[in-house]
Design a protein around this nucleic acid. Structure first.
Lengths: 206, 206
DNA sequence: CCGTTCATGATACGTCTGTATCAGAAACGG
DNA sequence: CCGTTTCTGATACAGACGTATCATGAACGG
């Protein structure tokens, strides 16, 4: 039986093509024909690997989630010694659109986010637990930092974690909207982290 | 000359119908036919008052901006004595989706925001100066509060203002996404304002 | 009452969409 | 070489979209 190609590889190629279109021209421009052209395959093949568009949309969303998670983990590992501050910094800067990859990811994510606001099918068929996970991760790190005496004991870790994540998301929106560039957003985020942790600590991070 | 109706009134009725659809079912559901049905008029009349859909979209966006500005001003005036803290609090809570009106406004705004990310026509034909205005307003208030000794002299008003606005926008996104309700978001915002200003001041605000 | 304005109705056109169906070509394992 | 798998091509269909064009009715100022 001549099974030349891995179906999962083809599906991922097509799914990534959709994400590129969603990032560059918006999710409403990601039609079956456009995705086929972007992936360099025929429309017929897209229908071959994804029987319906909803399946393609959901699969690409799963790929997007995987890439986001992988980026967060990579950024955490890349920021040297594993301290609460570096974990929080790595996590939040992974979400912030400061380079080409995070720009593509956040732009595509915004499209899905807006679609999920009105298409309840997408929201129900997709676990929206991602932001909650990140928020809990940060809250845990803040508690650890508090026990280690690295941040003020009077702060509320839960409220602060929610605030930091919301701050980062809001900064990301302003970057996508063209209100400021990624470096300016990173400066604002760094400023707030500096006020939370010691002022001199963040400067040593790359 | 029998000029029975005010054209501006009719245009506003139709434009508001589009905003209701954009908020409830998304901007992609706001077709000419749907808008006509929502406004209770014929499709022909929508074409009569708006020669093209882009004109309708831009006009409704202008109405949305007016309603947002009016809401901010009303909230500022409603929060009693005009202090920097009450102005900042009123401004930010006007943006936060905590009641029916702000929910509709922020939901419609999100649709336009996402559309503007990819349709450069909309972005160019519309002054995106709104967030900048709000940020400058808050920064000014923070400077005033700093001169009056109401907040710490070591904080950066500009970075703090950008952070507060981004925080509020991020909290709003989490409310729309169903991650938390409006009251929880308001609690997080109040917590951060309490840490910025005196802890006992915000409690007196309604 | 008469003419202008406001408004409706039915209908149509061209385009794009997701989806489906035909046939057929290219590649590779046995 | 043969058969299965992978992939393409052309084409079609029904529906929705923005837009346009007909005719026609209702209301009100002069």
């Amino acid at each position: 039986m001549p099974k030349r190609v891995d179906h999962e590889v083809r599906r991922r190629q097509i799914g990534e093509a959709l994400l590129r279109i969603a990032s560059a021209r918006g999710l409403q421009s990601a039609t079956m024909r456009e995705v086929a052209a972007e992936a360099g395959v025929s429309l017929r093949l897209v229908q071959y690997y994804f029987h319906t568009k909803e399946e393609l949309l959901l699969t690409a969303l799963a790929y997007l989630g995987e890439r986001l998670s992988a980026r967060v983990e990579n950024r955490i590992r890349a920021h040297g010694p594993v301290s609460p501050r570096s974990v929080v910094y790595g996590t939040l800067t992974a979400i912030l659109p400061i380079d080409a990859e995070s720009l593509e990811l956040t732009r595509a994510y915004t499209g899905y986010y807006t679609l999920a606001l009105t298409d309840s099918d997408l929201a129900s068929r997709h676990g929206a637990t991602y932001p909650d996970k990140v928020e809990r991760l940060i809250a845990t790190q803040l508690r650890t930092a508090q026990e280690a005496g690295q941040i003020e004991p009077t702060i509320d870790p839960q409220a602060t974690a929610a605030g930091l994540l919301a701050l980062t998301n809001g900064l990301g929106s302003s970057v996508l909207g063209g209100q400021r560039d990624g470096q300016a957003a990173l400066a604002v985020l760094t400023y707030h982290l500096d006020r939370l942790f010691g002022h001199e600590a963040t400067k040593s991070a790359p």
